[in-house]
Amino acid sequence: MKLVVHVDGGARGNPGPAAIGVVVAGADGAVLERRAEAIGEATNNVAEYRALLLGLERARALGADEVEVVNDSELVAKQVNGEYRVKHAAMRPLHAAATAALGGFARWTVRSVPRAQNAEADALVNAALDRLA
């Protein structure tokens, strides 16, 4: 079963209070699950990876064997796809965890889109951050 997973992470300040948002949908676009979580103090990039990891975890729990991940972080998408190296030492464990999680799917894609095309996951992040204020 293929699932489409929209993920986003953000921090107010960099680093600062951070949150993640995940929207899991079927291939037909029907939303199966939404998640928003505060993750404490983190950078934007850490939050993006944490959102990716939660999205993959939820897709697996919902029975996916194929996943299409959509995010608005070109950096994370290009790192996971092997187009960019992971230079920052603190990011390497998150990258390794993401690639290991992706390896558990028969097929996967990760792509970045403009923020407007990831609006629901972005709204979940902001709602979680607003609850912290």
Rank of each mutant, 00 (worst) to 15 (best):
M1Y: 12
M1S: 15
M1D: 15
V4W: 10
V5C: 00
V7I: 12
G9A: 10
G10Y: 04
P15I: 01
P15M: 02
P15G: 09
P17M: 05
A18I: 00
I20E: 05
G21K: 00
G21A: 14
G21S: 04
V23Y: 08
V23L: 01
V24H: 01
A25W: 04
G26F: 12
A27Q: 15
D28T: 11
A30E: 09
L32S: 02
R34N: 08
E37A: 09
E41R: 15
E41D: 07
N45V: 03
V46K: 02
V46I: 15
E48V: 02
A51F: 04
L52T: 04
L53Y: 05
L53Q: 09
L53C: 10
L54D: 07
G55F: 03
E57P: 10
A59R: 03
G63A: 09
A64T: 09
A64L: 07
D65Y: 12
E68H: 08
E68M: 04
E68C: 12
E68Q: 10
V70F: 10
D72Y: 07
D72W: 10
S73E: 00
S73Q: 06
V76P: 11
K78A: 11
Q79G: 10
Y84L: 11
Y84G: 02
R85A: 13
V86Q: 05
M91A: 10
L94C: 14
A96I: 06
A97N: 07
T99F: 06
T99L: 07
A100D: 13
A100Y: 09
A101I: 00
A101K: 03
L102G: 04
G104S: 12
A106F: 12
R107C: 02
R107T: 07
R107H: 10
W108M: 02
S112P: 08
P114W: 06
A116R: 14
Q117K: 11
N118T: 11
D122Q: 02
A123P: 11
N126V: 14
A127K: 06
L129H: 08
D130P: 12
D130K: 04
D130Q: 13
R131G: 05
A133D: 11
A133W: 12
